[in-house]
């Protein structure tokens, strides 16, 4: 079987598929895409006052591996602090799902989505002084 059972499991029974209110202050949203294969991934996190991720949701339009990677990521994120979440590496996802080389980029996309969600939350929840700094930083970046 080319697709690992774990991938199929996430594909058939995805965990945490859905949406949260994007406008809510405690929600961080990351939207990323891979042009070569046309995969689009949205990952959202809800962070409580102590900086711990209490909920995570995803919506992915793409191949089975992309869906599985984002599904697994949301599972993994729950209960982690933002710093811990920022350390999530795509290789861990790829290893856990036993992704073949052609599908590694799906795990990279998931990692990008997590980082984008964290960044979005930080931008919304930074202290006023930090907000100004953060906004300047954002303007220089290429959007993903």
């Amino acid at each position: 079987m080319p697709y690992n059972e774990k991938v199929l499991d996430h594909f058939n029974n995805p965990r945490n598929m859905g949406s949260m209110d994007k406008a809510a202050r405690d929600v961080g949203t990351g939207i990323v895409g891979a042009p070569e294969c046309g995969d689009v991934m949205k990952l959202q996190i809800k962070v409580d006052d102590s900086g711990v991720i209490t909920e995570a949701k995803f919506k992915t339009f793409g191949c089975g591996a992309a869906i599985a990677a984002s599904s697994l990521a949301t599972e993994w994120l729950k209960g982690k602090t933002l710093d811990q979440a920022g350390e999530l590496k795509n290789t861990e996802l790829a290893h856990e799902l036993a992704l073949p080389p052609v599908k590694i980029h799906c795990s990279v996309l998931a990692e990008d989505a997590v980082k984008a969600a964290i960044e979005d939350w930080k931008r919304k929840n930074a202290a006023p002084a930090e907000t100004a700094l953060a906004t300047e930083e954002m303007q220089g970046k290429t959007k993903t």
Binding site: I31, V32, G33, A34, P35, V40, K42, K59, F61, T142, K143, T144
Partner: peptide, 13 residues
């Protein structure tokens, strides 16, 4: 270079 125009991915989603 994976970038897309601003807001495009949102629209696609």
């Amino acid at each position: 270079d994976k970038s897309v125009p601003g807001g495009f991915l949102n629209t696609m989603l």
